[in-house]
């Protein structure tokens, strides 16, 4: 009998919604919630031996949560670990993706999760674990289980999966060899006819994504403009009050620098885990140039420096997450009357 451990969040464990999102990891024997459907779908070939669950907020805010979860899973010696599915729930998706990829990396056990296309967890983890495509809400649970269960069984048996398109998971970015039914030229003609007819077609090699943004025209009157600083270099008030992760950041911080003329090693530091922090910690202005901006402000070269700066860590952070951050704080910047932003990275 194939042994399965299932990871879910507080909601699917029946503990409650957002108000219970802070509960730490727990483990129970057997299945809980959606695990019942999985067990049924395994058709007697596999069984959920234990279910591990954790509050989404707790998981994302406590670095040690993953270690606890991994220990709980390791004790069961499972043949496969199924996480979620998380549908379009962002924090749950990140938790499922983290558990699935860490279990695979640390324990060498195959893992499987499921998410909706727009879940930020997809971009963050699709190269690290198999993520099956699901609908955007729990209404798609039955379909998701029907798709995930057989794939999980085959993975547990050590079988090679087919292509992403054939199996219904998000392309991992790992290229797999295969022999097609038709030769390339014939596939090209078929593809072209579909493209010409406006029918859906599937490219065999999706081009790497380029998200090009046209720069705005230059600020005409910088001397009267309100300028803000935004950094992906991880400069945060000493102690990192918002617990921005040193890599794969799941959020950003907004910090008041009203009256701050220079950042010092006593008051600021970097949370970034992707570069040698010595020089940034010794003089955080090297990454977030508050000192120079204040000089410019004094000299009248800029109108004023905005009271707030925004910071996150750009180390392995998913493009989808970064986009989400910017979507939110851009609105605040506009509301604050900011006319120009200087983005610094590392």
């Amino acid at each position: 009998m194939i042994k399965v451990v299932h990871y879910i969040n507080q909601f699917y464990a029946g503990k409650g919604g957002e108000e219970m999102a802070n509960i730490p990891p727990e483990k129970v024997k057997g299945f809980v919630g959606p695990g019942m459907a999985f067990n049924a779908a395994f058709g007697g070939e596999a069984e959920i031996v234990a279910t591990v669950f954790c509050g989404d907020s707790y998981f994302n805010e406590n670095k040690e949560a993953i270690d606890t979860v991994i220990d709980m899973i390791a004790e069961e010696k499972p043949d496969i670990v199924i996480c979620g599915p998380a549908f379009n729930a962002g924090r749950y998706g990140v938790a499922c993706g983290t558990v699935a990829s860490e279990v695979k990396a640390r324990l060498g056990i195959p893992t499987l999760t499921g998410m909706y296309d727009e879940n930020p967890g997809v971009d963050m983890f699709k190269s690290k674990t198999i993520i099956m495509k699901t609908k955007d809400s729990a209404a798609g649970m039955r379909k998701a289980v029907a798709a995930m269960a057989p794939v999980a069984l085959r993975m547990a048996k050590g079988e090679e999966l087919g292509s992403a398109a054939a199996e219904g998971y998000f392309p991992t970015g790992i290229r797999k060899d295969l022999f097609e039914e038709k030769r390339g030229s014939e596939r090209a003609v078929d593809m072209l006819l579909k493209k010409l007819a406006g029918e859906p077609f599937e490219t065999e090699y999706p081009m790497p994504q380029f998200d090009r943004v046209q720069p705005n025209p230059a600020v005409a009157d910088l001397a009267h403009a309100k300028v803000a600083l935004v950094t992906s270099g991880g400069i945060v008030p000493k102690g990192n009050p918002d617990h921005i992760e040193s890599s794969s950041a799941s959020h950003y911080g907004k910090y008041d620098i009203d009256g701050v003329t220079v950042l010092t090693d006593k008051t600021y530091e970097t949370a970034h885990g992707g570069y040698d922090p010595v020089y940034a910690n010794a003089d955080p202005n090297r990454v977030l140039p508050v000192d120079v901006m204040r000089e410019f402000e004094k000299e009248g070269r800029i109108g004023e420096l905005s009271h707030y700066y925004y910071a996150t860590v750009g180390n392995g952070t998913a493009v989808a997450s970064a986009k989400k951050f910017a979507d939110t704080f851009s609105k605040e910047l506009i509301a604050d009357g900011v006319q120009a932003v200087i983005l610094t990275s590392t």
Binding site: S163, A164, A165, P171, R175, K176, D177, L178, F179, E180, E181, K182, R183, G184, S185, E186, R187, A188, E204, Y205
Partner: peptide, 9 residues
Amino acid sequence: MGFNKFSAR
């Protein structure tokens, strides 16, 4: 030129 059936996904 697409002479073969060998491919990758």
